[in-house]
Design a binder for these strands. Structure first.
Lengths: 109, 109
DNA sequence: GCAATACTCAACCGCATGGTTGAACAAGAG
DNA sequence: CTCTTGTTCAACCATGCGGTTGAGTATTGC
């Protein structure tokens, strides 16, 4: 179950248009038209991207008059980040090793 | 560009088989056969997944005799994590708000 | 040399993706 | 009521994905 959420979350994040939309939503609620505007894309195309983001639980919508306002839902991002941090020790160890090498190089000169 | 690296990294992570392979590699170098074994998958199929991971810079290979040993390269994971943490304030604010509500509820009772 | 092992490569399949266009619908503006 | 705006839906297209099979290439063991 968690596995499947990671699938959809990472897949949603694997597209630059969708990441751009999220960045745009970080500044506040936006209609789908406003989300589509910066990307040379058709309205229907944007609508599809929004549906992917919604399917991944990354955004929620509410209808206001004739437009749909989208807002960010960061929970899946938090869970994806949690998963990525499993490897944190892995890459920090590497960086530590690198720093140690740099220090060794310094003291040699 | 950084954007494109995020594309390939997130796409590589969006598949449970590939995430499993990474987890397996966290325990040490593995041949492609060893990587394929836990997943009911053909040899060629595993080879493709490995190629995707390699293309994303998440693993490196070296030839030892007739087998290919793969090892984890965590750098792209670190960069993906960095990107995700852009939203960290976003979700922690939410959690803070939730805690505040819980506290408010407690003191009301 | 010969057989087995550890792969890679090319071709194919079914299905999803990202994109389009054009028609439809719902709601506010005149 | 009509026109425009904001959006969805359905159909289509080209491309790519995850998977397979079958053939081909190194390398090791006998």
């Amino acid at each position: 179950m968690v596995e499947q959420e990671l699938d959809t979350t990472f897949h949603a994040l694997a597209d630059p248009t969708r990441r751009g939309m999220l960045a745009s939503l970080a500044l506040g609620e936006k209609s789908i038209g406003e989300l589509a505007q910066p990307f040379a894309i058709s309205f229907a195309g944007a609508s599809k991207h929004v549906k992917v983001l919604e399917g991944a639980g990354l955004i929620a919508r509410r209808k206001v008059g004739r437009m749909q306002l989208c807002r960010l839902r960061p929970e899946p991002l938090a869970r994806a980040d949690l998963w990525l941090r499993q490897w944190e020790t892995f890459w920090t160890v590497r960086l530590d090793r690198l720093e140690a090498l740099i220090e060794a190089e310094k003291s040699r000169s």
